[in-house]
Amino acid sequence: MALYFEDVQVGTQVTPLVKHPTTRQLVMWAGASRDFVEQHYDKDNAMDRGLPGVIVHGALKASWLGQLITDWIGTNGILKELKCRYRGIDYPGTEITCRGKVIKKYIEDGEHLIVCEIWTENSKGEQTTTGSATIALP
């Protein structure tokens, strides 16, 4: 599967990516990414901080937004830039949907570029991470 510059227009939707994080997954992310901040796997610690339970790492959500784009563009496109702003907390046991939409399409220095607005959404439809991605396409 390959995505080409001519295939996308401003307004084109990125194929959504749905995630169902578990505490087990948070532990896997903690180990693989070297993030051992306790609030992501130790419920007592999270509750001491006033949280109802362990929370999903912002960096994990950022990585899912990266995956949203790399899944969509295939191996011919190049992810040039990724921006994320962490706005809300997500919990394991909930559904998180990563979405995106093309907001700009242009050619610069011979490169065919698009910019997508990207975000993660909880089951209430609230955007918990927002950002953008700049992509070069063949």
């Binding site: 992310w29 994990l60 790399t70 899944d71």
Partner: peptide, 27 residues
Amino acid sequence: AIGDTNPLWQDEITAKKTQYKGIIAPP
């Protein structure tokens, strides 16, 4: 950990056939 099966990060044979000529780091 993130649940990403993209061959670019883990499958040398498939990744070799791409513009990257081999495995690369995921975002």
